[in-house]
């Protein structure tokens, strides 16, 4: 673990949200905490960006007009190239059925709005760590 932390590799996070003001606050928090940020304002745009950028993690809004977060997550997990990228839902929906649905779709974490810096960064870091461990343990 110590080894990976000392490597100066900048991790990229793809943030998908249809509200630019929310994108802005997430971007600033992640950049302040040394992540590189890619943004997408729609579900479809998010899927394309994921395939292009192959980010280390994806922060995904559930409620979007064209393609909602659950559907996008399902498609990402079906995609050969993207299935291992950890997906963290950023949502206003806190109902247990949403959490269950997200987890069943393979989500790595949840961040509910409004969120603190610690919570957002914590979830992202934990998800990336877990994904990396899984990758290392797989032959």
């Amino acid at each position: 673990m110590g080894e990976t932390m000392t490597e100066e590799k900048v991790e990229t996070v793809l943030v998908i949200d249809d509200d630019p003001t929310i994108l802005n606050v997430i971007r600033m928090i992640l950049e302040t905490n040394s992540y590189r940020v890619q943004e997408a304002l729609s579900g479809e745009g998010g899927f394309t960006a994921a395939k292009e950028v192959r980010p280390d993690a994806i922060l995904l809004d559930i409620m979007m007009p064209d393609l909602d977060g659950f559907e996008l997550c399902r498609r990402l997990k079906l995609d050969e190239e993207c299935r291992d990228i950890p997906v963290i839902f950023v949502t206003a929906k806190t109902a247990p059925e949403h959490l269950r649905k997200g987890l069943s779709l393979g989500a790595s974490g949840f961040v509910t709005k409004p969120f603190t810096v610690r919570k957002l960064v914590g979830e992202v870091a934990a998800a990336i760590d877990a994904a990396r461990k899984k990758e290392q343990s797989t032959p």
């Binding site: 929310i22 997430i26 600033m28 709005k113 409004p114 603190t116």
Partner: peptide
């Protein structure tokens, strides 16, 4: 929830 998210996100960032 929208302004709350903005306020909380930026304020925790500014504070910490």
């Amino acid at each position: 929830r929208h302004p709350a998210t903005i306020f909380k996100g930026y304020s925790t960032l500014l504070l910490e």
